[in-house]
């Protein structure tokens, strides 16, 4: 789901940073209000965990591979705004140090794997929290939601930005990008769901302590 440099039109890049920047600022403010002696190392460790879990590439049929993200876990253990800022930091480090995902795509990548995944996962979890498998379902669907968003952003590129019938940026339209992204993540979602459920249970988080947004 890491979009690389050159895949998005400059217009997409500008709009995405215009949308993401105020959200990052607000999330940073929220970070302050969530901090105490217990949460500071937890937030650091969960962010590091998100980085490491993304390194577990899982192959699926069709010559593709993918990975879990860990956004929903942070969202339900701490808060979705914190999850958004944690995953954004992970994506920044991946782009700068490891060349995984583009710098110009940082805002889109943060919005998909950070914002969309964290908030969809968080609200699904709240909705389902009386059920034992709420973390699994929330994690699963959050990844599918994020992949749908990525499919949309990629798919509109050839629609708006082509020259002489040749796409300038990502070349495949919505009819391909959305089903391919969502289809693959219907499988990778299992990894995200399992990861979320397992770590959530290991952390023995009691239901009452779900933070308000």
């Amino acid at each position: 789901m890491h979009i690389a440099d050159g895949y998005l039109s400059p217009q997409t890049v500008i709009v995405s940073f215009a949308v993401a920047t105020p959200l990052w600022i607000y999330a940073f403010k929220r970070l302050k209000s969530e901090l105490n002696e217990e949460t500071i190392p937890m937030i650091g460790a969960l962010s590091a965990l998100s980085f490491v879990i993304m390194m577990f590439n899982i192959p699926i049929p069709g010559g593709t591979s993918g990975h879990a993200v860990g956004a929903t876990l942070i969202a339900i253990l701490i808060n979705p705004w914190i999850a958004f800022i944690s995953v954004s930091l992970v994506l920044l480090i991946q782009a700068v140090i490891f060349g995984d995902g583009g710098i110009s795509a940082l805002a889109v990548n943060s919005l998909s794997m950070g914002f969309v995944a964290s908030f969809s996962g968080y609200y699904l979890f709240l909705l389902l929290k009386k059920y034992k498998f709420a973390p699994f379902i929330a994690g699963y669907l959050s990844l599918v939601a994020a992949s749908f968003f990525v499919g949309l952003v990629l798919g509109i590129q050839p629609l708006f930005w082509s020259e002489d019938g040749r796409p300038l940026y990502f070349p495949f339209g919505l009819n391909i990008s959305v089903p391919m992204m969502v289809g693959a993540h219907l499988l990778f979602g299992i990894a995200e769901g399992t990861f979320t459920q397992l770590i959530y249970m290991l952390m023995h988080k009691s239901e009452e302590r779900v933070y308000e947004v």
Partner: peptide, 17 residues
């Protein structure tokens, strides 16, 4: 695609881990 061919990223420290 032109944008992909011309993409200028920064040189990462450990490309592809």
């Amino acid at each position: 695609p032109k944008g992909i061919a011309d993409a200028k990223g920064i040189k990462p420290l450990l490309p592809d881990y």
